[in-house]
Design a protein around this nucleic acid. Sequence first.
DNA 1: TCGATAGTTCAATAAACATTGAACATAGGG
DNA 2: CCCTATGTTCAATGTTTATTGAACTATCGA
Lengths: 123, 123
Amino acid sequence: MSRTPPHPAREQIELPMVLDCLSDPIRLAIVYQLAQQEPVSSELCCGDFNGLSGKSNLTYHFAKLRECGLMLTRVAGTNRFMRLRREDLEARFPGLLDAVLKSAAKDADRLQLVAECDVVEAD
Amino acid sequence: MSRTPPHPAREQIELPMVLDCLSDPIRLAIVYQLAQQEPVSSELCCGDFNGLSGKSNLTYHFAKLRECGLMLTRVAGTNRFMRLRREDLEARFPGLLDAVLKSAAKDADRLQLVAECDVVEAD
DNA sequence: TCGATAGTTCAATAAACATTGAACATAGGG
DNA sequence: CCCTATGTTCAATGTTTATTGAACTATCGA
């Protein structure tokens, strides 16, 4: 449970896998939340997403997001911090992530995504 | 087999469904081919995609593309002509389709998409 | 060293998905 | 009017997917 999990290299990131990853509502919410938080801190840890589903289900979705190259996981003690691989995605698929995020933002209600300020947890 | 099949209204087009549709290599190839052909003629008929898979499998993928709002089917005699719903998609998700198409073009080899001039059929 | 916290792993399950071939429907040309 | 070309429908199949809970591992702080 200790070592950094494997990530694909930039050139290994595949378009169909990325689109498939983003097509799941829970994963889209994770990516969206990560993007929202970016101005404040570029990473969030697993627990910050507990509202979206159960822990073991989140582990499953985190793995998918990591394996398709959408995000990066950093292990720090008992926490795992994740952040978007913006640079790599922009290099591989220019404009794609932003277009998806903007589209998601437009439909935030419909997609039940958190509002900009709900990200701060309650305790 | 005669009447025009149902299409979702513009406002019913959902982001996750669109992304999921585009995440399948065959459907991505269909959309890509449709986009390539646009300058020449804005529509293609089912048979133009026979290289991608068997007919009944294509029917299945066409239905998905239609139901998620990516393309429009027009019935003309024994043919079905399809075209991209560019305007509707641009209105709902600005920049998204273009970003996907540009990304697909970059990876055309990897994705086994047809080159710009292979679209013309052989006979 | 103990206990709590954070997250993973595993097995089970139900649903959705892609693919196939055979049978069918429809329209148009000889 | 039949024959052919175009495309659909249906049922069967095997695969992948998302979700759950229980058991587990590792780290930190008291």
